[in-house]
Every structure is written in C-alpha cells, then in structure tokens.
Design a protein around this nucleic acid. Structure first.
Length: 575
DNA sequence: GCCGTTTTCGGCCCGACTGTTTTCAGTCG
C-alpha cells in the first residue's frame, strides 16, 4: 500500500500528540506539527520520489532528523519513534486531545490518576462523577466533557464551506444590526475559502459601550453560550457549528482581521518576521516598543513589514511570504474571469432542467459558453446516453445554439472511463463533439498501479480533452481513489489534456495542492460547476476559491479563455 | 527539533477567557 503525503502528515501529527502527552519540549512538538503541515502541502509525492532514489529537497523546518523520520514513514508507514510512542500509550488516548477543553496536561492527569485512555473510558468516568475528584477538575468541567464526548461521537466536526456560508451570512447580517457595530467580517478558514470550516469566526469593529456581545449571544439559533467576556464570546448553534466572536475598536480592525483570518502558520511566520525587525504583531496592531505603527488596515500591517497585501486564500505559510517579498505573488483568478462552463447536465440524464434552461441560466450568470455534458450509457441508473441518444442530443444542441443569442452552446459528454481505461462510447460519436470529458465513476478501489494505468490510458485517447474530478474524492465521505496524481498530471501535459477543478462543494477536486502541481507542470485547469440544475452555477464561486488556494491565475484556467481561445485549445491535436 | 552575516547555544508568536488555583495554569485560537 502506497504511503501518501497525507499519511506522512498524519503520522507526524500523531508523534506530536504523543510527545505532547509525555510533556516533551514544546518546541520539539511544534517542530513535528510544522513538519506535518509541510508534508501535507508538498506538491510532489514523497514516497514516489524516494522510491526513485531521489533525495528530499532541502526544506526549511525539516532538518536532518525529521528528514530521516519522513524517509522511514514513506518507506513503511511508520517509524521507530512512532512505534515506541504508540507502544507506551493507550491506543485511544490521542482521541481525547480532540475534545474541546482537554489539552495534553489534563489528558495526562486523566490517564495517570484514573487510567483513562479512550473516549469511552472518559465517558464512563464522567458519568460516575469520578472526574471532579481530580485536582483542577470540577463539576462544571465534568459536565462539559461529558457533553463534548457525546458531541464528538455523534457528528462530523467540520462543515463544508458552502454549508457554513448558509449559517454564517444570516448571522453576520444579524450582528450588523447590533448597537455600536461598524464592520462585521467572517474571518478564519471561511475567509481563506478552505474546503471545510471547523467553526465560524466573526470579527466586529465597534464603538465603546456597544452591544455586540449581547446581540451575538441572543441570536435565535444559539443553543449554548460557551464563553462570554468583555471582548470575545463563543457559542454553539443548534446546527452544532461553533461560532466565535471578537469585538475590536475600529482602529484595530486591520490587525484583528489579519490575526483572525490566519492561518495560524501564516501568522506565526509573519510574527517571526516582525520580531527579526524588532517589531511585535498582535491583534491590536503592529508595535515598535510601546508605539503602535500600523494596524488600521490589513495592508498597513503587511506594508510595515515591507510586504504587499497577501490574499487570504494564500495565507498558509506555503511560500506566500517569500513570494510576496520577491514581488512574485500570483494575480489570482477571480469569479468574473470565468467565461464558460464545460461540465453541465440536463434532464437527458440526471439533471433537473432542459438544455435550453441550462443555457439561459448560464447566460444570466454572464457566461459566454456552456458545454452540455450528460452521462454515457454505462451510467444506467441515470439513463446515460448511448450513441443514438447522444446523436439526437447533438442535433438538438446545435439547433439550440443557432437559436439562442448571447450564449454559445457546445456539444459534449461526460464519458465513463471503463475499468480497462477504454471509453464508454465509440469514437464515431465522440468525434462529433466539441468537448469530451472523461471521468471515473466505478471501480474506485482498484490498486494504485491499475487505477493509474486506467486513467493514463484514457488520457491517451486522442479525443479526450478534459479529465473530470480527477481524484474522485468526496470530502469527508469518500477517499480519493489510489492514483499516482503526479503521473496523471505529466500525462495530461504530454497529451494537452486539461484537468477539471470540479466546483461541487463536496468534491472541490482538484485539491489546492494538486492545482499547484498542475500549474507547476503547465497543465491547464478547468473550473466546472457540474451543474445538475439551472441554479447549479452558484458553486463556481467555491471552485474559484479553491483555485485561488491553489495559486491559479487567469492564464492557468481553460474556461477563463474567450471562446476563440477555447476552441483552439479543444481542437489541438485533432486532424 | 530547527536554526544562525549579531548566534553552533539559546532562543523559538501572542493574548483572552475559564475554572477553581486564592494568584494562575491550562486551553484555545
């Protein structure tokens, strides 16, 4: 079984957890956490690279020791240190660290004093009233932990971005009406457009003697107030999502916005940079000694460090600060740059609207072209198109294209890649289409070598122009299939095929890391809605957010091209 | 555990809130 970068990252994080429980040097713990983050963000496959006999490149934060650990992890999925740490601790003990209110010190006390090493054991002890006997634990803590275990066992703790937006925006609107409130911003991973959001971070600038905290906790959807002080508060909503609020004076909004947007790694890197200049950054501003020299706006914070403003989507300490320093930040793609959509379904298969309705909806959104790409015959459940029905649809689309003004319809199909890598429809019909989108919809669990071979063969097909949802993952629901993405991207470059960034909130496939890999290799990405209804183009905003996290610029995106440029690229390699 | 044209040792980001600790540790973001 291949070891993926994510596996290495998870192992390094587990080492950090276990070291922390041993009361190890906190900076040693941090080094492992940092290494986990770095490993998860690398744009090459560590195990594959090492297997080819290449060395790890020199990476800041990864010294000789950690490089050795990573080599060991890549080779066998674990390392001597991790084995030893795991042997010395109960298997479930790191689960306890995931509970809000429990950190390493208290978990250690639970284990040493009460022998608690799992969520189940903690639940039993709390129910029996045994926790309150421990020093530092009281009745309130006991009740809170009991509730936290139940919540943890019963539901996923992160929300997909588009879902989080449904909770965040009305709540923000409610806060804007608080007496004294000036500006209300949703910061945190929400502002950075992460695929999923753990909680909502509201930041409000307000005059003195405002009533923002009161209004925050009085919101109708608040089920529980977790904390409430003079300037910050936390609540849990009926939906289970946690919301945090910080109230700052108007003059501090920039510094606070920067602070609460994160990521934590980006903030730490920036503060280190400030320290080196004899400055200090906190949520109130940027200081030289006691004197505040910036912080009214985010840009002023960066400017005081001689940096341009860095877009939130890039703030992961994945090279953005160095790029900013060199003046080499990307000009990120924007929603308005998209000219079309090359992956749309209709009632012919599993969509809800007709091709005409989809075309009109695309036009209303300001798109210049849209490709109708229904499923192929293999998808029997959704009445996938065989060659005869597809031929009729092509005629219909061409007729519609002549009739409708202000939008160009392209003919297409989302054709299944069969298990052997061949396509689910004959070339005789595929060759009539403007765009052939190929996709894997079956046999997700093939071994890596066969899955990779299957997809590479499909990319070799001369009519394939686009690979849809290349990893097949569904966020928090289905793992990506085991495929050598580096090989897929190289093949795509060799064949002039584009990779889709499917904008569905539960897919967002390509990932941000894979977007950067594609960009590095010069492979164009196509941000598609995969809309199944006329209102389905809204998700393009999520796709653009993901693309921005992947450092993509307008020139890296196929469907940011005007129609003429698009046609040239689609026809490339055809006779 | 990492890192260094001030350094190979001694640093390593910063502040708010909670609970139970009567003065602050632990946790969180």
């Amino acid at each position: 079984m291949a070891v993926h970068n994510a596996d290495i990252a998870a192992a390094l994080d587990q080492i950090a957890d276990l070291l922390e429980l041993q009361n190890a040097n906190p900076f040693r713990v941090r080094a492992y956490r940092n290494a986990a983050r770095i490993a998860g963000g690398l744009r090459f496959d560590i195990a594959a690279r090492l297997a080819r006999g290449l060395e790890l490149p020199k990476i800041p934060g990864i010294g000789a020791d950690l490089a050795g650990k990573i080599r060991e992890l890549a080779a066998r999925g674990s390392c001597e240190l991790l084995d030893r740490l795991k042997a010395g601790a109960p298997a479930g003990i790191t689960d306890l660290l995931r509970l809000p209110g429990l950190g390493p010190k208290r978990v250690r006390a639970l284990h040493q004093e009460l022998g608690i090493g799992s969520l189940a054991a903690l639940q039993r002890a709390a129910r029996d009233g045994r926790l309150r006997a421990l020093p530092g634990f009281g009745e309130k803590t006991e009740q809170r932990l009991l509730a936290a275990v139940s919540a943890h066992l019963s539901k996923a703790r992160r929300f997909k971005l588009a879902l989080a937006a449904q909770y965040a925006e009305p709540y923000a609107a409610w806060l804007r009406k608080a007496p004294g409130a000036r500006e209300v911003v949703v910061a945190g991973s929400y502002r950075r457009m992460k695929e999923t959001v753990g909680d909502l971070d509201f930041l409000v600038s307000a005059q003195p003697r405002n009533r923002v905290i009161e209004r925050f906790t009085a919101y109708a959807e608040v089920r529980e107030v977790l904390a409430s002080g003079a300037t910050k508060a936390s609540v849990r909503l009926a939906s289970g999502i946690q919301a945090d609020l910080r109230v700052v004076p108007p003059g501090s909004l920039g510094a606070a916005l920067h602070y609460f947007t994160g990521s934590k790694a980006h903030n730490i890197a920036l503060r280190r940079s400030a320290r080196e200049r004899g400055l200090k950054v906190n949520e109130y501003g940027l200081f030289r000694g006691a004197q505040r020299i910036a912080g009214d706006t985010e840009a002023s914070v960066y400017a005081a460090l001689e940096l341009p403003w860095i877009p939130p989507e890039l703030r992961e300490d994945q090279g953005e600060i160095e790029a900013a320093r060199r003046g080499a930040l990307p000009h990120l793609i924007e929603l308005g740059d998209l000219r079309g959509d090359l992956h749309v379904h209709t009632r012919a298969t599993d969509g809800r609207n007709t091709a005409r309705e989809m075309a009109l909806a695309a036009r209303a959104r300001g798109l210049q072209y849209v490709a109708i790409t229904d499923h192929s015959q293999r998808q029997t459940l959704v009445h996938g198109l065989d060659a005869v029905r597809l031929a009729k649809q092509i005629d219909e689309i061409e007729r519609l294209d002549r009739e409708l003004q202000g939008i160009t319809l392209l003919t297409g199909v989302e054709v299944d890649i069969l298990e052997d890598g061949s396509l689910d429809l004959p070339d005789s019909i595929l060759s009539r289409l403007d765009v052939v989108v190929a996709a894997v919809h079956s046999r997700f669990n093939l071994p890596r070598a066969r899955q990779t071979e299957r997809i590479l063969r499909a990319l070799d097909h001369p009519l394939v122009r686009l690979l849809a949802h290349p990893s097949g993952r569904l966020i928090d629901e289905r793992d990506p299939y085991d495929v050598d993405m580096q090989a897929v991207i190289r093949k795509a470059r060799a064949r002039g095929v584009c990779l889709e960034l499917n904008a569905q909130p539960d897919r967002l496939d390509l990932s941000d890391v894979h977007c950067r890999m594609a960009k590095d290799e010069g492979v164009l990405v196509c941000i598609n809605s995969d809309a199944h209804a006329a209102d389905g183009f809204e998700v393009l905003a999520c796709g653009v957010g993901q693309a921005r996290r992947g450092w993509l610029e307008r020139g890296d995106v196929l469907n940011a091209r005007p129609l003429s440029g698009l046609r040239r690229l689609l026809n490339r390699g055809r006779s």
